[in-house]
Write a protein that binds this DNA or RNA. Structure first.
Length: 616
DNA sequence: ATACCTTTGAAGATT
DNA sequence: AATCTTCAAAGGTAT
């Protein structure tokens, strides 16, 4: 990771800066809104919120539409989550809360329980960590024994907060009506309008607010807590969720649910025993269910109430699927994704058999998804939050924000995710020894990227600018707190991807010209993983580079004026750009960060002009 | 209905 | 060894 790597050099990254520029010019207010994680700033920002709301013409209407109306496309996804949450909720407090989609929430951990690779589950680990960090003191009764003592990650030090006592209040109306501004939300949260878990201290810097995705509260759909059943998207009739619905990506059968391993369990084999007897040669092993027994047993209540599955329900089953027929979360049923070539070397059982009759026989080969990387984990966890805070809808835009936020994370924070990702990969490899990323090649319809046709540097700029225009500038764009650019306050040194751009290695200045390094793909990536110490092969742009953790010292940043969200951070001392390059390969240092700040400052002065130019 | 877009990171493929 | 390509999630948007 950029930051981690020490790639401080990237700091120069054009991307971030570019984006920021735009943001600044166009949406300063929003930027300020951002999440900056600091609640301290909320007050200051709150004023901005109003502005942003007003400014963003669409915001109200859109939001109103969005939140209140159930989104069909989301239904399935929601259903799955809701189901879990619902169950969890019941267990927790008799059903007095609505589960937010926010994976980081305790509730979300449920999916995780089932499987680390649940669509949500992937996050779950991170979520756990997140929670732990957020509520370090929280402990799970039965889970104690399950703690992953081995985990180096700080987050793992704490047991998962399953039994947190949480007061859930339905924020639905509030959310739906209110603009998704951070400040506002925060205030709401504080006002107890939304579920709040209060911890005396230790609020995760990244998640100052307990955010929920709007979607969770859509009025259109009855709160899950209100009804045990989920509505059939098509019929609208309440029905018991089908196991397969639990996770769109990783369908679980009821039995699977029962097999849900302890959240940490999936990471750690119980008692050192091999949880998953993994066939020497082949993958296709059921996901970690094993752990569950122990973990679940520790939570009798959960079993009875939520999962109602006894540990014994899950005997070992030979194929990749659980005895329950539950495919590994990472496995996508062929029915869902079909692959041109199909080798039937898989046992029939592998085919999605889950509840639904699966038809396609052929393609039985399950699609095993890649394990999520650190950023993906982060994204999953934070997306809902960003969505809630911003008026943005487009994932592309959200992702840009997330990318910036990611860079703004401190090393420790990123380390958490790297560690989680590492564990995910590890688990994945154990579960699917024979799996290779290559197996999935070509499964995604086509990676277009054709645009690249002779992408000359110029072309890049063009394309970039285009993207830029679409997403960044969009009025809706909510700037990430960390956005390097303008809001130096939160993220002082956001790494900029630009640096990495192969085309312009030297880039420091050139990047500015092409801030949008959004082009990410085209550019090669070169970074060192701070954890692994080895350069990642990817070529992403520079992003990687990261920067340093810019946010490593969020505390120093001070918001200044509404307009800006620009605050003047207290910087160590500026470093010449020229000296920044090397940083890419070396761990970020305070100096780098400082340099970054200065860098940003420079850009800030003329952000728009650059953008404009490009756009022209 | 499907692909695109966008992000970072990992891994495989290519040079 | 360095670079490039693909995929992972997600959901609005475009075709």
């Amino acid at each position: 990771m950029p930051q981690l790597n020490g790639g401080g050099g990237d700091d120069l990254g054009a991307n971030d800066e570019m984006i920021s520029f735009k943001d600044e010019g166009e949406q300063e207010e929003k930027i300020s809104e951002n999440v900056s994680a600091e609640r301290d700033l909320d007050d200051l920002k709150s004023s901005l919120v109003n502005e942003s709301e007003n400014n963003s013409s669409s915001s109200d209407s859109e939001q109103a539409e969005r939140r209140p109306q159930p989104r069909p496309d989301l239904d399935s996804y929601e259903k799955t989550r809701d189901y879990f949450s619902e169950a969890f909720r019941r267990q927790q407090d008799g059903g007095f809360f609505k589960s937010p989609h926010y994976p980081g929430y305790p509730i979300f951990m449920i999916p995780d329980l089932t499987n680390p690779y649940l669509s949500n589950g992937a996050l779950s680990p991170s979520a756990r960590t997140y929670l732990q960090m957020k509520w370090p003191l929280l402990d799970v009764p039965g889970a104690a024994g399950l703690k992953d003592s081995r985990s180096p990650t700080p987050g793992h030090l704490v047991s998962t907060p399953y039994n947190l006592s949480i007061h859930w209040v339905y924020p639905f109306s509030l959310v739906s009506k209110a603009p998704l501004c951070v400040p506002l939300l925060s205030s709401l949260l504080q006002s107890n309008k939304v579920p709040v878990v209060q911890h005396a201290h230790h609020v995760h810097p990244l998640t100052p607010l307990i955010t929920y995705s709007n979607e969770h509260f859509s009025p259109g759909t009855p709160p899950s807590h209100l009804s045990p059943e989920i509505l059939d998207p098509k019929t609208g009739i309440p029905r018991t969720p089908h196991p397969s619905e639990l996770s769109p990506y990783y369908p679980l059968s009821p039995g699977a649910v029962g097999q849900i391993p302890h959240p940490l369990g999936w990471l750690v084999p119980q008692q050192g025993q091999h949880m998953y007897s993994i066939p020497p040669g082949g993958f296709r092993h059921p996901y970690p269910t094993l752990a569950m027994n122990a973990s679940m047993s520790s939570h009798p209540q959960k079993e009875s109430n939520i999962f109602r599955f006894s540990p014994h329900m899950m005997p070992h089953h030979p194929h990749g699927m659980h005895q329950t027929g539950i495919p590994h979360p990472a496995i996508v049923s062929p029915a869902i994704k079909q692959e041109p070539n199909t080798h039937d070397h898989m046992s029939p059982s592998m085919h999605s058999k889950s509840p639904g009759p699966v038809k396609k026989e052929e393609d039985k080969k399950p699609h095993i998804k890649k394990p999520l990387n650190a950023f993906m984990l982060y994204m999953k966890e934070m997306r809902a939050k960003v969505v809630a805070e911003c008026t943005l809808k487009e994932s592309a835009a959200i992702n840009q924000i997330l990318g910036r936020r990611w860079h703004s994370l401190s090393r420790e924070e990123q380390a958490k995710y790297y560690e989680l990702a590492r564990k995910e990969r590890q688990l994945h490899s154990q579960l699917y020894p024979g799996w290779s990323a290559r197996d999935n090649y070509g499964k995604r319809k086509k990676r277009k990227r054709d645009n690249k046709p002779d992408s000359t540097p110029e072309d890049f700029s063009i394309s970039n600018k285009k993207q830029c225009v679409q997403y960044l500038p969009s009025e809706k764009m909510c700037d990430s707190p960390a956005s390097s650019h303008g809001s130096m306050l939160d993220s002082p040194a956001t790494p900029s991807a630009a640096l990495a751009s192969p085309a312009a290695p030297a880039a420091t200045h050139s990047e500015q010209a092409q801030p949008l390094s959004l082009t990410t793909k085209p550019e090669g990536r070169l970074h060192h993983h701070f954890l692994t110490g080895k350069p990642s092969g990817s070529a992403s742009s520079s992003s990687s580079s990261s920067s340093s953790s810019s946010s490593s010292h969020p505390s120093i940043s001070i918001p200044i004026g509404t307009s800006g969200s620009h605050s003047t951070p207290i910087l160590p001392r500026p470093i010449p750009f020229s000296s920044l390059h090397h940083s890419m390969l070396s761990p970020p240092s305070p100096f780098h960060q400082a340099a970054l700040h200065s860098h940003h400052a420079l850009f800030q002065s003329q952000p728009l002009s650059l953008v404009t130019k490009l756009s022209d």
